[in-house]
Design a protein around this nucleic acid. Sequence first.
DNA 1: CGGCCACTTGAAAACCTTCAACCTATGTGG
DNA 2: CCACATAGGTTGAAGGTTTTCAAGTGGCCG
Lengths: 218, 218
Amino acid sequence: MRAGTATETDCAWCPSNRRCWGEALPSESVHARREPPLERGARLFEQGDAAGLYIVSSGCLVLRVSQPDGSQRVVGLRLPGELVGLESYAHGQQMYTAQAASPSTVCRLHLPALGAGAAHGALLERLLLKSAAQPERASAPWAGLPAVERVAAFIENYSQRAHLSAREDPFKLPLTRADIGSYLGLAPETVVRALGHLSQAQRLAVRGRTVRLGGPAR
Amino acid sequence: MRAGTATETDCAWCPSNRRCWGEALPSESVHARREPPLERGARLFEQGDAAGLYIVSSGCLVLRVSQPDGSQRVVGLRLPGELVGLESYAHGQQMYTAQAASPSTVCRLHLPALGAGAAHGALLERLLLKSAAQPERASAPWAGLPAVERVAAFIENYSQRAHLSAREDPFKLPLTRADIGSYLGLAPETVVRALGHLSQAQRLAVRGRTVRLGGPAR
DNA sequence: CGGCCACTTGAAAACCTTCAACCTATGTGG
DNA sequence: CCACATAGGTTGAAGGTTTTCAAGTGGCCG
């Protein structure tokens, strides 16, 4: 799939650096490695691969996640100037598979071993800004799922993010049904009915805003 | 809505710093300003306010965007240890309104004037990691919209991100209908029909994967 | 030319939204 | 302390949208 050799360069010397960084760069500021071109369909990395951060120079990458049930979903697009694989630095491995949707070129950015200190402030600063500007982060993983599953995914996600001591402890949702609906793209009534179904299927216990994961059985 | 006084502190001295940063901090490393507590319903900032970056210490914030048609949508949640307002540093102003869903406390992080150089590498590094770990970025703005609008929003968004020279120029979508559908949470057939409707309404011209924005009229 | 893949179209079924009514909890003023 | 007002929550039925299934078309490459 991938052929050719990678070449180490400084972005300041790259003719297309404005597309990537949006401004002229002082030399020595951003060190990158241009990867061999990706033909249509080639994969830059797979979900689960070792962490690695890239910036798209030309073309277009599609990001896909494999779901537990074996199906795949597209969770993002990356166009020139956008970052690919940033999430991997927080999770230790790639969170999605990146595949070229059209012939593409990318450069690998070497994050100087995180923790090495204040050495590369300028690069970090640029990356942070870019990251903040990035339009999408693995967009709504529940898009396309039936309403019941969307609500279940939301509750599950919430309970993980809130640092709940014991998974069995009941907790209180701070949101109204209308807010949950607005967040998931569902009508409030649908949220109510979905919670009802989940309750009945013993996947969780709901009373008002109080929720407990896993029915009496689990 | 907001009462009390903000107090400048160093996160290293804060009893709850592990919740925010997940590890012990060397003193002098992260300087923050604890804001007065937010009661339920209080707003930390409004969409359009001046840029500002906060970290949630306790409680829960809901992020809402006002849509052109006047309606509001919930686009995100922030729980303790998560960042609020990061996007504002890339866009110059807050991209959403942040409101306390339950009584909450937040600290404001002072990003030393961006561009000031490598001074605060450690903080930048932490922020970048946090940003990469952040589960959601203003999640799918098209959730809940009818299929036709979702597809329209997707095409519009794509054409803006690709740096297309003239808005009238036709361009080529690198994705199949199935991929677009997977991304938007729609069946491929629905994407086809939606494109048909948009074409017929002269909102865009589609032939195969070639698209031109705005009908012959615009 | 044949095969494959993407794309398109139609009809039935499933799902979700909408509308409307009603219920429950909470808090306020009398 | 009770009556009432309000906001959130719940339930049912009708209607619209989307999905699914099935069949057929078109382009590209061996």
